[in-house]
Structures are given as structure tokens and as C-alpha cells.
Design a binder for these strands. Sequence first.
DNA 1: CGGCTATACTTGAGGTCGCAACGATCATAG
DNA 2: CTATGATCGTTGCGACCTCAAGTATAGCCG
Lengths: 160, 160
Amino acid sequence: MSSQVLTTQEASAPALTAWLRFLRAHAAITRELSARLEALHELTLSDYDVLLQLYFAPERRMRRIDIARSVLLTASGITRLLDGLERCGLVDKARCESDGRVAYAVLTDAGVKKVEEARESHLADVEELFGSRFDRHEREQLAALLGRLPLAPTSDACSS
Amino acid sequence: MSSQVLTTQEASAPALTAWLRFLRAHAAITRELSARLEALHELTLSDYDVLLQLYFAPERRMRRIDIARSVLLTASGITRLLDGLERCGLVDKARCESDGRVAYAVLTDAGVKKVEEARESHLADVEELFGSRFDRHEREQLAALLGRLPLAPTSDACSS
DNA sequence: CGGCTATACTTGAGGTCGCAACGATCATAG
DNA sequence: CTATGATCGTTGCGACCTCAAGTATAGCCG
């Protein structure tokens, strides 16, 4: 049925075009954002992402597994990432009293400070590289469209 | 001016919301796409990407540096990626006669076959995970919006 | 020609991340 | 109380990718 060979990838379909632009834009923007974040604050984009989650979490602490799910890294990735943040003194590890399996990550005072410092320049960078390309209406449009994309491995990613 | 502290990242601005969704969606979708591609065809998403560039290139060959630029990897990344593809017999290396510095990557017959095999399932996967979320009009909208994002390090990424 | 700079590519070292396997803890049911 | 199964976390291993440095070629100018 749809096995017709297409001459170029761009000509194939708007979906593919959009997908390719999505891929390329991600590569370019995250590379630049990460470079700036690292140069100014010695943080990876993932580091920053995790710190920000903690910053806005109740009591500024979260279970490691919840961090993993919220930033879409695996549990092992979170372990190693937090190792680094702990060594830098930005995060503390706290065991849960009621459940011996879970370990919390808690933002330290230094961590709070770091987030607030980094956030300022990072917000500006995101605005420059991403946001400034769109007006208010387009931003909402884009957010709405991107919000439909799946976040879980394969199946539904609703509120459940 | 815009230094007011915001209570949650979602509340801050549509641009940030869009950016976060962009980040998360990329992580989820590429992970799934890569897993499927690897399971069915033993290819990385980057492998596939490079093979596809070659597939549509004149004479199915490209200079390594041009591959790097088109898929947004560094030159060293391309060297190692092509090493793998050469070992698999999907790509051949060819020196340029007029310029001793450049080395071409040429798609072999096996490479052509591989692309055509992988393309079928990959297109379906992209459609399922990405394209199917949007109708025709939305795809064009999305492609247009994403097309405004920068592809070069910092500055302009126009046709110059 | 000899020097100088730019470009194409490769290599060594290091960082980030996922997968799979493992240990520890909890919850449930017999 | 013990067996079973699920959940949380860590670790060994390997893949992928970047940065910085190094090699080789090309082009330009004195």
C-alpha cells in the first residue's frame, strides 16, 4: 500500500519533515545550552534539570525514583548523577524512616543558591535559543502540540 | 524587571513549558525509536540517520565532514560511527583524488538494502510515536515552527 | 621554494547514559 | 513466621559522543 519509494526525505511527508527538524533542533539547542551551563556554572543540562525538580518539590526533596520519572532518565542514571551533585555539596542523601528502600535527595543550601544563580542565565539562554523564535500565540500552540507527544515507553502517558 | 521569582516552572511562561515538553518528548521518543531500530535492524538512530543521508546523496556518497554537518554530530563522532558501518559492510571508504584530505563514505549495495529494509519499519514507528499525534494541518504548523529553531552553534543558521 | 594558515580526518581520554543483574526492603498471603 | 512477588536503589559493563590534540593535505603569499 504505502510502499512507494520516495525520492527525498523532505518530500515524503510533513510528519517526517517535522520530525527531522525536531531531531536537529534538539541536538543544536541542547548542545549550546549545555555548553553555556557548563561554562558558567559547571552543570550539565541534566544536572540542572534535576536540581530544578528538587527546587520546586515540597521540602525540596524527592525520592530518587520520582526524579528519574520526572526527568526521563533511568534509575541508574539518577544514581550516578546524584553522586556527582552530592560530591559537589549541592544535594544530600536522606534515608526514609518508614520505608528502608527509598532514599531521598535533598537540596542543600548551596544547592538552592546554585539553582537560583544558574536559573537566571539559563532562562535567558532558553529564551534566546528557543523562546525568542515565537510570539506568545505560537508558544502556546507549540506547547499544546508538543504536549500530545508520548512520554512513556510506548503506550498511554496520560495522568494515570 | 523580569526578576520575579516564580512558584513553579510550569507557571513561568509558555516558552518554558514548550521547551520542557520538547526536551521530555525528545528523550522518550528517541529512546523508543532507537530501541526498535536496534532490535529489528541493529542500527542506532544515528546510524540510520547517516545511512539515510548517504542514501539520498548524489552517487550515494558524501564527504565525512558534510555528513557531520547534516546530522549535527562532530567530525570525530562521524569517524567512529562510520568505522562501525564499515565493519558491517554497509559503507565503504573512498579517498578523493583531487584532494588528499577528504575521504568519502559510499553506501554499499548491502547498505542500500539495509536502508530500504529499515526505512519501512522506522517510518511506521515515527508515524506512530510522532506523526499520528497530529493532523495534516498541525504537522505543517509544527514543521514551520520547528524550522525557525537554530541549527548552528549560536548565531544565524540561514542559507548563507 | 619555504613558511603560514585553513581544512579534513583521526585518535586518546573522559563523561554521560542505558541495560541487565543484583541486593535490600516491603507487602501480601498462606 | 515464612514464602512470594513487587519496588527501590546500586553497580558492572558497554555504547555513544565530545573535546582537545595530533597528522596530513591544500592553498596562498613572500
